[in-house]
Design a protein around this nucleic acid. Structure first.
Lengths: 246, 246
DNA sequence: AAGTGGTCTAGACCACGAA
DNA sequence: TCGTGGTCTAGACCACTTA
């Protein structure tokens, strides 16, 4: 396999094999071609082929068994869970369109809980971005993002962009920051009057509260987000693989 | 580095480096020794060192940057989330002890929702295991596990073991099955009278409903579990890393 | 016994980041 | 420019599964 473009060879193998698997060339439980066969087919070394299969295994769409082969797993269960996606992106994958409403941005002294989550001193300023997410015109989610101000100077000038683009997209495009990991803590509680008003429902319902801390690729905490989500509409999918280390 | 024992060399490197990181030898944001330094220290090839660092990266406790080095991330955020743990194991990690109560086991024709989740015909029998989990003597969780009967024959004979050991432990020890992945779907709803009675609370509260489908390492669905969990006590932590493929 | 994936070596060149 | 991690080769031997 020649490499005229810039993409690494092992990634080309990943793409080709993933397309074949999701395209239905193999049934669930089928064996992928052996490593030797793939070496001949792509004219690549074993190391390269193995690193490609390693990517597919990490994504959960194949499983390797010594002495047996590489088994095709059910791709229905191995969607893009557990990757860092925004609320909008998650629903877009299901073919649902999310709009943003009632955006407000302001510079703040962070409350203590946010200082703790971001591990910052109490004189470090943060931006508070508040907005409502609508699914098919109806409010489904209310979000409060606290962002470290020193990373996103003059954020208020970009409010209009937020109406049409995602916050993460803005951060990566305008401020050239690399967000690559986060921790979500998900709890649930019964709605009160404020939630009823913000999300436009009448009877009390169960709500998700998602507290996310986002980290940059240098290890610094960068953002703390509290999302209040209608529990009667939304659900979380979490993909679990392997036993814990140790 | 000699290999007198059976453990692969790269895993020894993983253990040694992980111990150093969690033991506080490096601060968050510090650089790990370069690959060349580790090659000399362990007297191993670059490939082996890199595969060890790859494991640590997958666990989220380091992050590699081309041209810069390998950065130590905050191990507080990289606990054993997203690995396949039982309810009991998850709480045990926090130092909490969970007891099991009111166990019942029976052979059933599965309801349609379970047939769908496990992808089995409607004449395939399943065991239904029901039980209550207690945290410090108080009910916190009610679980209904549907297990494919052909994988766990005569399960009812092991009910007494379930009082003291976890279900997964029993399955791995007695039936020699390898469970290696699962999908959780988490929703929330308001409790009704039945939930109040089972979990012993008075006022209506918000509950988690966790629907887990468990898969064996051959790709077959094996078990479907519905857990009802008190939302005022429990929380989920999900560790997210990297952007989705494609 | 044969065939599979798992581990490991000793090199090579490339792409990126910082000085 | 130099040092870092990223990719890749062509081999070797081992461990596990199946027949």
């Amino acid at each position: 396999m020649s490499n005229s473009g810039k993409e690494p060879l092992y990634k080309k193998v990943v793409h080709e094999l993933r397309d074949e698997i999701t395209g239905g060339k193999y049934e669930v439980g089928d064996l992928l071609p052996t490593e030797d066969e793939l070496i001949k087919r792509f004219s690549l070394s074993r190391t390269t082929i193995r690193s490609a299969i390693g990517v597919l295994e990490k994504e959960g769409i194949v499983s390797r068994k010594q002495g047996k082969g590489t088994i095709v797993m059910d791709q229905k269960i191995s969607q893009n869970y557990n990757f860092l996606s925004s609320f909008t992106e998650t629903l877009a994958e299901k073919g649902l369109k999310v709009e943003t409403n009632n955006i407000s941005v302001g510079l703040q002294q962070p409350p203590e809980s946010v200082q703790l989550a971001l591990r910052i001193p109490d004189d470090e300023e943060v931006y508070l971005v508040q907005r409502t997410k609508l699914l098919e015109g109806k409010p489904i989610c209310f979000m409060r993002n606290y962002l470290l101000a020193r990373y996103v100077p003059r954020l208020e000038e970009y409010v209009d962009d937020l109406k049409h683009a995602g916050l993460y997209e803005l951060i990566e495009r305008v401020y050239l920051l690399n967000i690559d990991r986060a921790v979500d803590i998900i709890t649930t509680y019964m709605s009160g009057p404020l939630e009823s008003e913000i999300l436009h429902f009448d009877e009390p319902i169960a709500l998700f509260r998602n507290m996310r801390t986002t980290f940059l690729d240098n290890g610094d905490a960068f953002e703390y987000v509290i999302s209040i989500i209608r529990g009667d509409i939304y659900e979380y999918k979490v993909y679990l693989q392997g036993r814990p280390p140790r």
